[in-house]
Nucleic acid binder design. Structure first.
Lengths: 235, 235
DNA sequence: ACCGCGGCTCAGAATCAGCTGAGAGACCGT
DNA sequence: ACGGTCTCTCAGCTGATTCTGAGCCGCGGT
C-alpha cells in the first residue's frame, strides 16, 4: 500500500484545469503508488489517453474547452472503455450526473476529501477488474471495514457510522499502528478546503470511540501532542 | 546515522532569514552527515534549489521577500518535487499549513527542539524514499524505539513515554555509547529557546530510568561532571 | 573516614491538551 | 414546510505533563 518501487499500482490520468486541485490529487495518488499524469483541458486529455493508456481517468467536468461529458463521449466513440471518475461542482444538475454510474463510471463532488476520492477510485478499479483494485475489506484486530458495502463490523457486530466517522476510521485503518498527526488526518479525512476549527477531529474521535468501544477495548489511542494511532492496547 | 565518511547522508537546503536559527539547524544537520547549504530569502532559495539540487528543503514560511508557501508554489510549478519541511510560528493559523501533509511535506512550529526537527526530516525523507531515509527503528541493547509508531519496547515489553521522555531517549539512542554533555542534551531535546532551570534534565533522566529499569539493568549511565551516556553496564 | 559538590528523587504547582456534552445550523428526504 | 440526521462550534472539565524546589544520597578527593 505504501512501498514505492517503480511500477506501482496502476496508471491514472488526472484532468483538471485548476493546478491546485490537480496537484492535490496527483500528490495523493502518487503517494498511494499510482503512476500519474495530468492534463489541463479536454484536448490534451484525449491525447494523453492515447499515449499514456491510463487505467482510470479522474476528470473534471468543468474544463476550458470541451466539458468532461464531451470528453467521455468522444472516448466512448473511439471505443475507449477506460473507466472515468468525474469531478463535479456541487450544483451540477442531477440529470447530467445520473447515468454516469450506469456505465460503471462514478463521480465525486467538489470539494471532496482525499479519503473519499481514494475510496471511490478503488471501487471503480475493482469494478473494472483492473490493477489497483485490491480487496475491498480492511481489517485491524477485531475490526472490519468493507469499502464495497460500507459496512463496519467489530467482533461480528455491525456498527452504524456516519459519513465522516467512516472516512476517519477508514483512514486510520489504512495506516494501522502508525501515529497520524492531526494535520494528516484533517488533510485526508476532511474536504481539502476545510478551514474550520481543528477541534472537530476530537469530537469525531470521541464519536467513533463511543461506537467502537461498545464492542471491545479502545483501539484509537491518542498520542498526546502529536495525533492518534490505531493500536491494540498493550497492557 | 552518525558515521561520517565523506559523501554523507543527503543534501539539504536550509532557508531562514534569522542567522541564529539557520546556524543551529545547519550545525545539527552537518553533524548528522547531511550536506547543507543555506539561503536567507525566497529568491536565493529558488536559485539554490536549481544549483544545489537538495533532497529536502527546510523552509521558514516567514521570509523577507516571498513567503515560504509562495516559494513552494513556484517550485511545484517548475515540477520540482523536492519535499519541504516548513518552519512556522506557533500562531500561524493551522489552515494555512494544512494541506502540506498531503504531499508528504510536513511542518514544525517554532520554537522547536533539534531532536524534533531531525525526527521530522527523517520521516519526510523516508516517505519520499530518498537517501537518508533509513529504517525508522532505533535499537540499543534490548531497547527498541520506532519513530513511525512512536512505540518503545524493552525486552519485548511496551513502554509508555511522554513527549519529553521520548525525545530524550531518542537523542540518547541516536548516539549510543557516546557521552553527551548536559548542554548538548538540553540543546537537542528542549526547545532552542528554553531558558529554565537546567535541572529538568535530571528529573527526566530519573523518569526515564524508572520506566526503563522496570525491564532490565540501567542503561543510562551518569558521567559525573559531564553528562550522560547510553551504555550496557560492563560489570 | 570525612566533606562537599553534584546528582537523585519526590512532591507539588501551573499549565495544557484532549474529552465530552449541549446546542446551532445545514442538509436531506418526505 | 417539517422532522430527523449530521456536521461543526463552544466551553467546562479532567487528567496528564512539564517544570520547580527542597531535601537526601553518595561519589570522589583529600
Amino acid at each position: 500500500m505504501s512501498k514505492s518501487n517503480g511500477t506501482g499500482n496502476g496508471r491514472i490520468l488526472v484532468v483538471d484545469d485548476e493546478p491546485n486541485i490537480a496537484d492535490v490529487i496527483s500528490i495523493a495518488l502518487r503517494y498511494n503508488d499510482f503512476e500519474v499524469e495530468t492534463a489541463a483541458d479536454g484536448a490534451s486529455a484525449l491525447q494523453a489517453v492515447a499515449e499514456f493508456r491510463p487505467q482510470l481517468i479522474v476528470l473534471d467536468v468543468m474544463l476550458p474547452d470541451l466539458d468532461g461529458f464531451e470528453v467521455a463521449r468522444r472516448l466512448r466513440e473511439r471505443a475507449e472503455d477506460v473507466p472515468i471518475l468525474f469531478l463535479t461542482a456541487k450544483d451540477t444538475t442531477e440529470d447530467k450526473v445520473r447515468g454516469l454510474t450506469l456505465g460503471g463510471d462514478d463521480y465525486v463532488t467538489k470539494p471532496f476529501s482525499v479519503e473519499e476520492l481514494l475510496a471511490r477510485i478503488a471501487t471503480v478499479l475493482r469494478r473494472f477488474g483492473r490493477a489497483g483494485g485490491e480487496a475491498s475489506v480492511l481489517r485491524f484486530a477485531d475490526l472490519e471495514l468493507d469499502d464495497e458495502t460500507r459496512e463496519v463490523h467489530r467482533d461480528g457486530a455491525a456498527i452504524e457510522l456516519t459519513d465522516t466517522e467512516y472516512r476517519l476510521l477508514r483512514y486510520l485503518m489504512s495506516h494501522p499502528r502508525r501515529v497520524l498527526t492531526r494535520g494528516q488526518i484533517l488533510d485526508h479525512v476532511w474536504e481539502y478546503d476545510f478551514a474550520g476549527d481543528a477541534r472537530v477531529l476530537e469530537t469525531y474521535v470521541s464519536y467513533l470511540r463511543k461506537k467502537l468501544e461498545a464492542h471491545g477495548p479502545r483501539l484509537i489511542q491518542t498520542v498526546r501532542g502529536v495525533g492518534y494511532a490505531l493500536r491494540v492496547p498493550s497492557s
